[in-house]
Design a protein around this nucleic acid. Structure first.
Length: 409
DNA sequence: CATCCACAGGAAGATCTGGTAG
DNA sequence: CTACCAGATCTTCCTGTGGATG
């Protein structure tokens, strides 16, 4: 009586993790192991911002989880330490994967520049030119250097937002007092080639590459955080090398290594175990993979769900299929679900999207006289399909359609 | 070696959503 | 209310193409 339902869980939890925040991949540690060279290089370029001069633009390349974002956040923190009141220099960070439109980038920068709420740029409604000129005014209000970091900058070009870079690189020509220095972070080494030439020549200044972490470097990174996050007795010696080994196989991605360690600790705690073991890491690996895919499937648009459902139903009988097969099945199901039927052109795009998300595998292949089309194959385990079948969208889908017994096929 | 299938995928533009501005 | 804006979504129209087949 009177006991909260949560108390049983709290008693069961034996708190292996002392400091959970340390294990989040958003956490910026005091020291970034094995990134001294890159930090020095960037710092040496950026440092003149502190005396009010404009540093060259910088391009940073490296695969996911190689510490690019963490390094830049670290630089930002150090800049703030050197100039706490931001008299000469402000640091602005925008993640282009999150904001992802030209308007959104300007909006985001603008609302980090200004402190005056009456000056805020609205979320939508203004013309691009207006936002740009307001932003220029805001920046020129002061007399200082803005270091603007554009993370995942390659996503923007991919989404056809080329001219935003043109505008940002020429912004200094419209400024009288302040200056803007750009730092672009890209996962793709070919980023500059994809850019329009006029923006390319302006954006390219210094450039540097973050190599993937080796297995041993990953171990250092994990060890450093584990020392703070866990009691040394609550983690098996083999756990850190094991996490590092898995992540090293995926392009030395430190984010994956940290996710594994954190999830393994969570699982151990939830089970009421007192020590984290390799077995926990193994189930962490499965659980992460499952979560990523199921989250992706849940957030698909209705039309994409129907396309994926079609692929799943066909693959119950046939492993591989063509765009035409999918479209036939798609037409049938979308009618059943009461959705409007999209054109085949649009469905090919939806198939390509599913391919890029890694849920399916689709590659163009020529079958001679049987034409040239995409060969499509499900690339997640069959068990994932049940997730989709329970979706309210398909609750009226009758069994004959599900099992492919209809004459329509 | 030309043909021809069954699409791929680019370009341009229409439609819709959710917002500002006057 | 109308006029307008950016962006997502989708359509219409289109040209391009790898390789088995005749």
């Amino acid at each position: 009586m009177g006991e909260s339902i949560f108390q049983q869980y709290m008693r069961k939890r034996n708190n292996i993790v002392k400091n959970r925040k340390i294990l989040q991949n958003t956490h910026i540690p005091e020291q970034l192991p094995h990134r001294k060279e890159q930090i020095d290089k960037i710092a040496s370029v950026i440092s003149i911002a502190l005396s009010g001069e404009k540093p060259s633009n910088i391009m940073v390349y490296g695969k996911t989880g190689t510490g690019k974002t963490a390094t830049l956040h670290y630089i930002g923190k150090e800049l703030k330490k050197a100039d706490p009141k931001e008299m000469n220099c402000s640091f602005i960070y925008v993640n282009c994967e999150v904001v992802d439109t030209p308007y959104g980038v300007l909006y985001n920068i603008g609302n980090q520049v200004t402190v005056d709420p009456g000056q805020k740029i609205p979320f939508t409604g203004w013309s691009f030119e207006k936002v740009y000129s307001v932003l220029v005014d805001m920046i020129d209000n002061e007399d200082k250097v803005y270091v603007v970091v554009l993370d995942e900058i390659d996503r923007m070009v991919f989404k056809k937002g080329d001219d935003i870079f043109y505008y940002l690189t020429k912004i200094n020509e419209n400024l009288k007092k302040s200056k803007v220095s750009l730092v672009g972070i890209s996962n793709d080494m070919k980023f500059l080639e994809l850019l329009e030439p006029k923006a390319r020549s302006r954006l390219g200044g210094e450039s540097l590459v973050f190599p993937p972490y080796s297995k041993l470097e990953l171990e250092d990174i994990l060890q450093e955080r584990a020392d703070i996050a866990f009691d040394p007795n609550s983690i098996d010696k083999s756990v850190i090398p094991y996490c590092a080994a898995i992540a090293a196989r995926v392009d030395g991605d430190a984010r994956i290594a940290l996710d594994l360690l954190r999830t393994a600790a969570d699982i151990a705690e939830r089970n009421g175990d007192s020590v984290i073991t390799d077995a926990h890491v193994k189930s962490a690996k499965n659980s992460i993979e499952f979560d990523v895919v199921s989250e992706a499937i849940k957030t698909l648009s209705s039309q994409s769900k129907v396309v994926l459902m079609s692929i799943m139903l066909i693959s119950e009988k046939e492993l591989k299929m063509t765009t035409g097969d999918v479209y036939t099945k798609y037409s049938e199901i979308s009618d059943y679900c009461g959705l409007s039927r999209l054109t085949q052109r649009r469905v090919t795009d939806l198939i390509s999207e599913l391919d890029m998300m890694g849920i399916i595998n689709a590659s163009v292949k020529s079958f001679g006289c049987a034409g040239r089309t995409k060969e499509i194959e499900l690339s997640v385990p069959k068990e994932m399909c049940s997730l989709l079948k329970n979706d309210p969208l398909f609750k009226n889908l009758d069994r004959s359609v599900r099992t492919g017994q209809t004459k329509l096929i």
